[in-house]
Amino acid sequence: MKNPINGLNKVFDNRIRLGVMSILVVNEQVNFNDLKQMLEVTDGNLATHLVNLEDNGYIKVYKGFVGRKTNTTYAVTKAGEKAFTDHISVLENMIKGVK
């Protein structure tokens, strides 16, 4: 029998990356500062994890400007949404399995 733990996505091992994905699946586009505020993390820390998610193809990055200030927003990709949904399903199976 296959251990359901193997199905867990390594990318989502991290609390911050999981948090980013949780926010992005229920919001169309979210900017950097809002992510920072909701996850209560530092700029550098968040940036690193965002790059990781982007490299995995889970999020899209939109660089824009509000006046002269940069306004970078993030949105989930199809692949990212699927990966997240699968991750949730595995978690669900794990709870059911242990019961």
Binding site: L18, I23, V26, M38, I88, L91, M94, I95
Partner: peptide, 23 residues
């Protein structure tokens, strides 16, 4: 509950809280 299960439930409740708070 096993500790793994507690952990999983914790993870789910974190996801839920963040989804709720952000939307």
């Amino acid at each position: 509950t096993s500790s793994r299960r507690t952990e999983t439930l914790q993870e789910i409740s974190d996801i839920k809280r963040i989804m709720e708070r952000s939307s």
